[in-house]
Structures are given as structure tokens and as C-alpha cells.
């Protein structure tokens, strides 16, 4: 085995060690941090375990936003026009959070079927709608017409 072969061996072993460490870490981390993205009807139909973090995407139902008289708590309903899920959140809502607009809530489901949200996203685009929600809405509107 000459010097060049030895060097190649170094390259390859370095790469293999790096790759195997990384694969282990990735699998560990991916397993822990994947959040399912569901619409209200999918969530209603699914049997997701309690305390499992998920993302709920839909529209804020009209006239469903109720603020607490004290503090920053707020309750509202997320809908895809088929099913409704009540969401509870404490904190400052994003600028584009509005009745009838798209919203994503990240949180866990309680045993009463209420989503306790840790994060609320309203995208900075007035036409924004989560992809699967917009499909559902499109179907719905064609039915209504």
C-alpha cells in the first residue's frame, strides 16, 4: 500500500465516520420534530394521540374570535367549511390574523378537542391559503354555485 492509497483511506474513513454520525442524529431529530399538517376535517377524522404536536391549517371562522377581558388569551374557531376546531392561544397575534383569512396553528389537542396553540402563523400574503385547504375550499365553492 503506497502513500496515495493511504491518503485515500483517510478521506474515505473520515467521510464514513461523518456520514454515520450524521445519519444517526438526523433520524433521531427527524423522528422528534415532524409535525403533521392537518385541516379541521382531517383532524376530526384522525385519531392523533393527545399531547402530540401538530399543525392545523384553515380559515378563521367569522365572528368566532373571543378575547378574554383580562390578559392576552384569545379563543377562535378554525374551519375548512366542513369541520370546526376551537383554538385557544395566549399572546400577541400576528398582523395578518383576521376573520375569514388563512391561519396555521401549531399546538397540541386537549381531551375536549380544543387545540392549545403555542404558535399562530398568518402568512404575509392576502391570497395565501394552505394548499390542501384551498383545494377543499375550491371544491366547496363549485358545489355552492
Amino acid at each position: 500500500m503506497n502513500k496515495i492509497h493511504k491518503q485515500r483511506l483517510y478521506y474515505v474513513s473520515l467521510l464514513i465516520i461523518g456520514l454515520s454520525i450524521a445519519t444517526g442524529l438526523i433520524l433521531y431529530a427527524l423522528k422528534q420534530n415532524m409535525n403533521a399538517f392537518l385541516t379541521p376535517s382531517q383532524l376530526a377524522a384522525s385519531t392523533i394521540p393527545r399531547n402530540h404536536r401538530l399543525r392545523l391549517g384553515g380559515m378563521v371562522k367569522r365572528q368566532s374570535i373571543k378575547r378574554d377581558p383580562q390578559g392576552l388569551g384569545v379563543t377562535f374557531v378554525v374551519t375548512d367549511l366542513k369541520s370546526d376546531i376551537t383554538v385557544r392561544y395566549t399572546g400577541v397575534l400576528p398582523d395578518l390574523f383576521r376573520e375569514g383569512k388563512g391561519v396555521i396553528a401549531l399546538g397540541t389537542l386537549t381531551s375536549q378537542g380544543i387545540l392549545m396553540a403555542q404558535q399562530i402563523l398568518a402568512k404575509h400574503d392576502e391570497n395565501y391559503m394552505p394548499k390542501n385547504v384551498s383545494q377543499v375550499m375550491a371544491d366547496k365553492t363549485t358545489v355552492n354555485h
Partner: peptide
């Protein structure tokens, strides 16, 4: 296969040891 999102904790966990 459904819609998922990979959250910031994934990146933080993986990047730290590296």
C-alpha cells in the same frame, strides 16, 4: 403521503454537534 413540516428544533438538534 400527507403534509408534514420539519420544525426548527430538528435543525438545532442536528447542527449543534456538527
Amino acid at each position: 403521503l400527507g403534509a408534514v413540516s420539519v420544525g426548527a428544533p430538528y435543525f438545532n438538534t442536528v447542527m449543534l454537534p456538527l
